[in-house]
Design a protein around this nucleic acid. Structure first.
Lengths: 390, 390
DNA sequence: GCGGCTTATTCCATTATCAAACAAAGTTCC
DNA sequence: GGAACTTTGTTTGATAATGGAATAAGCCGC
């Protein structure tokens, strides 16, 4: 049963990538399509595909529907030629998953992990949970683990790959997650900020026609990921999208952990809201409880969520004017609160130029719970199928 | 004397562009260099270069310095194989210029033109001034005019190329500058927002190592241009960088032309400052006069400029956090005021995360008066030497 | 003047690619 | 049922792009 797997991906030639790209994105699924999409001649495509089939990267998966002539033989990547582990590290909950080489999520699970236990403890637990997930299905365990892609709730330096000055990850400052986890797992590791990965995940599984998107992760903290010209944008140091400490217009001077007053994170993050609710004498354990409270029409929780949405919308208004995205995705736990999203929308529309908003779509994620994992997988596969390789 | 010029550029093949790119940017200036930079073999380079020399696009311009062996024969684009007209339309002053195919500014001039005279009048005058500039030197007039690149002080739609809702260009809404000017001049026309062009000009003539830059044009109005991954970023509708109507944190509720209160343009633009000075009883004709006043230690003008700088810095702080550029260039007339720039710097550093600013360079433009024209030229040449062609 | 070094060219073998003819498979429509 | 047309895919031979190796040219230091 077990067919021979390709020894390794080493690196694809630019020509093969020109073919694998459309196959991967679904832009083409037959030789005729590929010829049209790539501009190469049919004979060249035949030669290339033969090679890729020989290498075990592509398979014929049956016939397509005729469009008035001979029906095409549909091609596909060998999704089972490997598997990628995905991790979405959260402050008190971590999601793990497995994606095949098409980027589809095969399995997932959640762990109650306190990130303040520190890198060594957390990453060891993550790895054993990933191993368990792999072992839980013979289909998975038979496949070659290509690597693991990790999202962390803090800034990641684009040079060193280290976690830098993460306000919600005590004990992690300067941690080289790729080195630690790679040492345990023995496979290549990629590390990125979690909001960045969510932006990628939502872009890959959602509207790919819109090349400029901003994904806001409004959870216990607030961050965002930027897709510019169809690619993740991380800025000069990898810190792009960190809007935690942007000043909220017309905001009360609430002190922030960064030492200043009136930051978005101190006013509108899930953490800040829960704290404020507790100060008001309500017993709420976490953000989810707070949202449930608002759904039950609790006036304080509802007001706080609406105000938080409004403040977030005010900050995003500046960003929309500046960046002019075609799509804004509101994700994170807070996006499950209708009143938060409504507050965000109304303030954003009120404070933006019509030219910036008339073609702007504001949505919540297609798969709110999965887009972080999906993004982790996509980033890994994009890299694997790039000229740079892994 | 007049050597035969290439009939037309039509379009370059991808391979030739791979050679022209490094030659144009200065990344290579000999065949050996090109082989290293492009990864092509020396023999291929020889063949390609022979073809490009035959086509009249490249010339040998002498010998370089030896690096311990045979000295290289330096290659260069034929800068005289054409000329490009550049226009920087302003509200009451317009600059025009000519660049060669290397992007170097050969000549420039200024026109006192009131933009509210409307597109037909203004563009006709611009064209006759350009013709005069061309005729002023036999070196220029002999060269083939490839086209004209125009910067306008308002938003330009990336789809239609039309000027859209320009608050400082009465009578221009919906104008297709390329069609009108192209009709008069009979050459290809490119149109872009002026701040965008300044960003390109400063990037091309300045620090190209830093791929993410923001250029703020603080003049009679306030706008900015964005360089992301080494390329101009215009957003989904071409409106990116329009920060005129971003809300200033903690600002007085001054009414703005857009119908809201506390916009950056209403508070910190040159226009707003002059108006406020006049309200205070001082006779100032324009922004330059105001800056002169501040240099003479006028307390009101100085205070206003510092506050304007501070407010601009406050808005830019959000942008720096979000976009994480490696370089911020403060241009426009107001950047000639030291107190404005100082106010901007201090507020920006105060309100930004250290991670976003520790590697951030804040400068004024290398050639403040020319970067708009240089950017116009660069945008045109980039397009000319692209696969898309002109 | 003689190695050693960098630069550039020539020649040849290899390879990628394309065009065109051909084959295969299906649809349409009479 | 069958001719005509469409779309898909393969084969074949010709062509052009490319790389490698050998060679030549030019310069430096000793």
């Amino acid at each position: 049963m077990a067919s021979r797997l390709p020894a390794s991906f080493t690196r694809f030639s630019a020509q093969n990538l020109a073919i694998l790209g459309p196959l991967r994105s679904g832009a083409a699924d037959s030789k005729a399509d590929l010829a049209k999409v790539t501009g190469l001649s049919p004979s060249t495509i035949t030669a290339r595909i033969d090679e890729l089939i020989g290498l075990g990267h592509v398979v014929e998966v049956g016939d397509g529907v005729s469009r008035g002539g001979r029906r095409p033989r549909t091609l596909a990547l060998r999704r089972d030629a490997g598997i990628v582990g995905c991790v979405d590290l959260g402050v008190d909950r971590t999601s793990i998953g497995l994606v095949d080489l098409s980027g589809a999520l095969l399995a997932r699970g959640d762990l109650d992990l306190d990130i303040s236990s520190g890198p060594d403890v957390v990453l060891a637990e993550v790895w054993s949970a990933l191993e368990a997930l792999l072992a839980s299905d013979t289909e998975h365990s038979r496949r070659l683990l290509r690597g693991v892609s990790v999202g962390v709730p803090g800034p990641v330096s684009s040079e060193s790959g280290r976690v830098v000055a993460p306000s919600r990850m005590p004990g992690w400052n300067g941690t080289d997650v790729a080195r630690i986890l790679g040492g345990i797992a023995g496979v290549p590791i990629l590390v990125n900020n979690d909001a960045n990965l969510m932006a990628v995940g939502e872009f890959a599984s959602g509207d790919r026609m819109e090349p400029n998107q901003v994904f806001v992760k409004a959870g216990s903290g607030i961050g965002c990921g930027i897709i510019a010209r169809g690619e993740l944008f991380v800025g000069s140091r990898g810190a792009a999208g960190d809007i935690s400490h942007v000043a909220v217009p017309d905001a009360p001077p609430v002190p922030c952990s960064c030492g200043r007053y009136g930051c978005l994170d101190a006013l509108a993050s899930g953490n800040a809201l829960v704290r404020e609710l507790q100060n008001a004498g309500l017993e709420v354990a976490n953000v989810e409880a707070m949202i449930a409270l608002a759904r039950d029409a609790d006036p304080v929780a509802t007001r706080l969520l609406r105000e938080a949405g409004s403040m977030t919308g005010g900050v995003l208004a500046s960003i929309v004017n500046f960046f002019n995205p075609g799509r804004l995705i509101v994700g994170g736990v807070l996006s499950q609160s209708e009143v938060f999203v409504a507050g965000l929308r109304s303030t954003l529309y009120a404070q933006c130029l019509p030219m910036a908003t008339d073609q702007l779509t504001i949505t919540t994620p297609l798969r709110p719970g999965d887009c972080g994992l999906l993004g982790a997988g996509t980033v890994f596969l994009d890299r694997l199928f790039s000229e740079r390789g892994l």
